[in-house]
């Protein structure tokens, strides 16, 4: 299994906010153990999805030049469980963006039955405040050189994927 916890970006406003979607398939490995006979998404994976959405938002704001690492989850609330078959919407907004790091607030929604991806209508099923640090430039240069191991591959490609999907939608209308 690859460490990608969002399927696609559906909204992206540079330096401000981003929304990503994640469909929960019963075929995903973790549902077998969590919990047997009662497939609910582990809360830490929900947070990971929110952090990936927010982390890419923060990284893109500096053209992916910074190594953005999750430093702290200041608060997290889970109002209900997410079960296999549901679609999650990760809404994130930048609260602070500075050279040393950034903080975001995020809310997780589920789509109502029959609802297409758009504005959330249900109350959030989870919310969190997440704090990211930009790795110290001089120190990380010594350890990792110029390689940006955070945004070296799949995470960065997600934005390109969103563009392709958007073009297809435009073409269809």
């Amino acid at each position: 299994m690859r460490w990608i916890w969002i399927d696609r970006f559906v909204k992206f406003e540079r330096g401000k906010s981003a929304r990503a979607v994640k469909k929960l398939s019963l075929a995903e490995d973790y549902f077998q153990q969590h919990m047997p006979g009662y497939p609910i998404m582990p809360a830490c994976f929900i947070l990971e999805g929110l952090a990936q959405t927010g982390g890419i938002l923060v990284g893109e704001a500096n053209d992916f030049k910074e190594k953005v690492v999750l430093a702290k989850i200041t608060s997290a609330k889970f109002h209900r469980e997410a079960v296999a078959g549901e679609t999650l919407l990760y809404d994130t907004e930048i609260v602070t963006l500075r050279p040393e790091g950034a903080s975001i607030v995020g809310k997780v929604y589920t789509l109502a039955p029959g609802q297409s991806i758009g504005e959330p209508v249900n109350p959030p099923m989870a919310e969190a405040e997440i704090f990211f640090a930009h790795l110290d430039k001089s120190r990380s240069q010594q350890l990792f050189g110029d390689l940006n191991f955070v945004f070296s591959g799949e995470l960065k490609h997600l934005l390109g994927l969103a563009k392709v999907a958007a073009q297809r939608t435009d073409g269809a209308t």
Partner: peptide
Amino acid sequence: SIDFLDIVFRLEREFGIKIPR
């Protein structure tokens, strides 16, 4: 250590000031 940066961010917002690194 990471909390210090968080505190700085919050103080800036709360008081509407800039706190240089």
